[in-house]
Design a binder for these strands. Structure first.
Lengths: 129, 129
DNA sequence: CCGTATCCTACCAGATACTG
DNA sequence: CAGTATCTGGTAGGATACGG
């Protein structure tokens, strides 16, 4: 359990500082699946299986792992109905919703500017369309 | 050289689609260094060495590689002064500036909410402060 | 100063099989 | 249905040395 520094005013969060937790968090969140999972949970709760289908290409293993990590960061809430067979839902916490808005902005921008970004660029696989 | 599809209205960019270029671009941009390099170039041009010092922990190899990739995406402009010894500057294109705003919003949010995110979390190295 | 060329390793994450 | 456990390879990226 992490104990916050006594004097937080001394702490200057800075993603450019290699040792700063903010940097670690950025690197972490900018992993392969975190952004997508948060985006997927934007509007409503989803069950494990629903998320699997929504986020094409993610494996059960990575989905679970990512959700656990987001849980640890107070971004996602895991709701276990306690039934048999199991029924589990995931939803964003208020903190997660706050972050989600930033991420969605980024995701939508990438979608909107997709063609600008791949112009003159053959390093992105384009088997889409 | 990529040729844009004749009928773009048929293309529905979607990061959840594993084959969509938008998905590839997101995964790409959300790599370990892309977000930081774009953030670093927010306000002014920087030289190679300056970026190295600004972005703690990045290697020359990864910096060059990342800058090249951003160049290919029309996000960064490389300005070679053609002098000896070499003097090269990098700056964001208008497209890059547009994306930069989204990224900075994300980065600042992470910094601002750092302590919320690491509460109850021992999986982030905290040798900072 | 601004790179490139190699080599090499850790670990990310996919595949598969199994459980309550 | 919602997970774990184990094995495995591919590759991102670090370290190092060299070059214009």
């Amino acid at each position: 359990m992490y104990e916050l520094p006594k004097d937080r005013t001394k702490a200057q969060p800075n993603v450019f500082n290699a040792k700063c937790p903010a940097r670690c968090l950025l690197t972490f969140l900018a992993g392969k699946w975190h952004l997508l999972v948060i985006d997927a949970l934007a509007k409503e709760r989803w069950r494990n299986g629903e998320l699997m289908r929504k986020i094409e290409g993610i494996s059960q293993k990575m989905l679970t792992q990512t959700l656990r990590e987001l849980e640890n960061m107070n971004l996602v809430l895991r709701i276990d109905m306690g039934t048999v067979p199991p029924h589990v839902e995931y939803e964003l916490t208020p903190l997660g919703q706050d972050l989600r808005m930033k991420i969605c902005t980024l995701d939508r921008w990438i979608e909107d500017n997709m063609f600008e970004l791949i112009r003159d660029n053959d390093s992105v696989p384009l088997d889409y369309v």
